[in-house]
Computed example of a mutant assay.
Amino acid sequence: METSQPAGRSWLWLILLLPYIALLWLPFYNDTRPSFAGFPFFYWYQFLWVPLTSLLIYAVYRGVK
């Protein structure tokens, strides 16, 4: 059984590259300031991407489904 995706929805998969690029661009977030609740920027920036990535995966799943 073959499933074909609509041509208009193929760009949704590119959204999944955002966390990959944002976390591999180390010079952007390799700093201690600004701190949030005592955590340096380096750590809370990475922790912020955990729920953001989950939301992006869900959005792509719903968009493709």
Rank of each mutant, 00 (worst) to 15 (best):
S54L: 14
S35H: 08
Y45W: 15
L17I: 01
A22P: 00
Y20W: 14
K65A: 11
F36T: 05
S10F: 04
F47K: 06
S35R: 09
G63Y: 10
L26A: 14
V50K: 02
W49V: 03
S4H: 10
F39E: 06
P6H: 13
F28H: 13
V60D: 00
G63H: 07
Y29L: 06
Y61N: 07
P34R: 11
I15V: 15
A59H: 08
E2R: 10
L48I: 05
S10L: 12
T53F: 01
Y45I: 02
E2C: 00
T32N: 11
Q46K: 10
D31H: 08
Q46S: 09
D31A: 13
T53L: 01
F47Q: 09
P51I: 02
A59S: 11
I57D: 03
F28G: 11
I21Y: 09
W25E: 11
P40Q: 11
T3D: 10
M1S: 13
L12W: 09
S10Y: 10
Q5A: 13
R62S: 10
S54K: 02
W13N: 13
Q46P: 00
L18P: 00
A22W: 01
Y29A: 04
Y61D: 05
P6G: 15
F36Y: 14
F39Q: 11
N30F: 09
L14C: 07
T53S: 03
